[in-house]
Simulated scan of single mutants.
Amino acid sequence: MQSIKVADYLNHRPVTFKQDMRVESAVEKLLQSGQSGGPVIDEARRVIGFLSEQDCLKKMLEATYQNESHSVVSDVMTKEPLCVKREDSIVQMADLMICNKPKVYPVVDDEGRLLGVISRANVLLALDKHLHDAYVSGHRYV
């Protein structure tokens, strides 16, 4: 089970954001992607933050009350997101996700550049597939 790696289940094409993007534009991207959040990246694709639906919800609610919004992603993003490596095990990811709040984690290389993201759904899929494969192979010889 430890041999199942993040690299085998990560989403290579996640929704991403730039720090100077308006929050309203970021919300549109989130809604179109169906993801609950995504990494904020710089010009070199290094992860500099993370933007979640929850981050946007607060700003959008404030904008509704004020009837205007001037916020950009850098105003609301999480500044030091939890990132993981492609070599990390799915079991480690599951443990991390049980103890921490994020539903989506950026997957980065050694320089902090974005390779993709892994979500709770990706981890559940990996665990389910492993358990199913173990069940099938365990009964194949009975």
Rank of each mutant, 00 (worst) to 15 (best):
V123S: 13
Q35W: 02
L31P: 11
R86Y: 09
S89E: 05
E87T: 06
R22I: 04
L51V: 04
I41P: 13
F50R: 01
S33D: 05
A7I: 10
P39R: 03
P106K: 00
G37I: 04
V91R: 09
Y105Q: 09
S74H: 03
P102Q: 00
S71T: 06
A7V: 05
T78A: 06
Q19V: 15
G112R: 01
V84I: 14
E111K: 03
Y9K: 00
D8V: 04
Q2V: 14
E24K: 14
M93I: 11
P39S: 09
H132N: 12
V108H: 01
K101P: 09
V104A: 03
K79T: 12
R86W: 12
G112N: 03
C99Q: 09
D8A: 15
V108G: 06
V15A: 13
R140Y: 14
H132A: 12
S74K: 11
D110L: 11
A26G: 15
Q92V: 07
M60Q: 02
I118V: 09
K5M: 07
H70C: 09
Y135Q: 07
D20P: 14
V104H: 12
K18C: 11
L61D: 11
M97L: 13
M77D: 01
I98Q: 12
K58Q: 07
D75R: 02
M77L: 11
K79H: 13
Q92I: 01
D20K: 04
K129S: 08
L82Y: 10
V73Q: 00
D109A: 04
K79E: 08
L57E: 13
C83M: 06
K85A: 12
I4Q: 15
L61T: 00
Y65T: 07
S71C: 15
A26R: 15
A7R: 14
V142H: 14
M1L: 04
